[in-house]
Simulated assay, not measured.
Amino acid sequence: MLKDLLKNKEIVLASGSPRRHQFFKDLDIPFTMDVRPVKEVYPDYLKKEEITNFLAELKAEAFQKELKQNQIIITSDTIVYNEEKALGKPKTSAEAKEMLKSLSGKTHSVFTSVSFTTLKHQSTVNCETKVTFKELTSGEIDYYVENFKPFDKAGGYAIQEWIGLIGITNLEGSYFNVVGLPTHLVYNELIDLASIQ
């Protein structure tokens, strides 16, 4: 259905995430991939979804001078937000372990923003999911980080991996958002954009 609506559009997914690529395939949305380097820096005063909105729109700026008439550039960003602090992707094992220790036994939020940019239009949607971890032992944290090396995951974990299976006790909101894309919002937004010339 959506595939037919988008037949005159070129969807460009500006993400290197294999999870986002799979979501687009599962949604049956034809797309090309084009990832451009962006320095992901945001103003200190931004909070929660303001951060992901800013970064998703920042990533779209790399395409603005080359946009074609029928293109829709899709950019996104995900953060884990815990105790008024944004957790990005850990750079080291020690940093990943510290992140997981900070999430242990608590409820945190995962925010994802997705920006849709065309020649004449830009819209950004966002989603919050609340995730609760049990009290994780040091052994569990060490095992996960050493075996799964979650250095490309916001907050140092992936919900669909071992740590999520054994550690997550409650979820409020979209599971797919935590994996990296609020698929229901992307679907609805693309339906709206399909009608825009």
Rank of each mutant, 00 (worst) to 15 (best):
E146R: 13
I159H: 04
K106T: 00
S123D: 13
V38N: 09
K65V: 02
N70P: 11
I79T: 07
A56G: 03
N147D: 08
T183R: 07
K68Q: 14
S76K: 07
Y81T: 02
K3Q: 15
K91F: 00
E49Y: 08
L185P: 01
F23G: 15
L2T: 00
A56W: 08
N70C: 07
H121L: 12
E10F: 02
M99T: 02
A158S: 05
S15Q: 10
E10C: 04
V131A: 06
K39T: 14
E189T: 15
N188E: 05
S76Q: 14
I79Q: 05
K25C: 12
V125C: 03
K39H: 13
D77H: 13
D44S: 13
Q160P: 11
D4Y: 08
K25E: 15
V110F: 00
T78R: 08
N126G: 06
K130Y: 02
E49P: 01
S195I: 07
F133Y: 15
I196W: 05
S113A: 14
V38L: 14
L87S: 01
I73Y: 13
S15I: 09
K47Y: 05
E57S: 02
T78P: 11
E98A: 03
S104K: 01
L13E: 05
S115Y: 11
F176S: 13
T32I: 08
G105N: 00
D152K: 06
Y175W: 06
F23H: 15
D192E: 12
E172Q: 12
T92E: 00
S76L: 12
H121K: 12
N53C: 10
H184T: 04
A158E: 05
K68M: 07
F23V: 15
T183N: 03
V186Q: 04
Q64K: 07
R19C: 06
A86T: 01
K153I: 09
V12N: 09
T183I: 14
A14P: 03
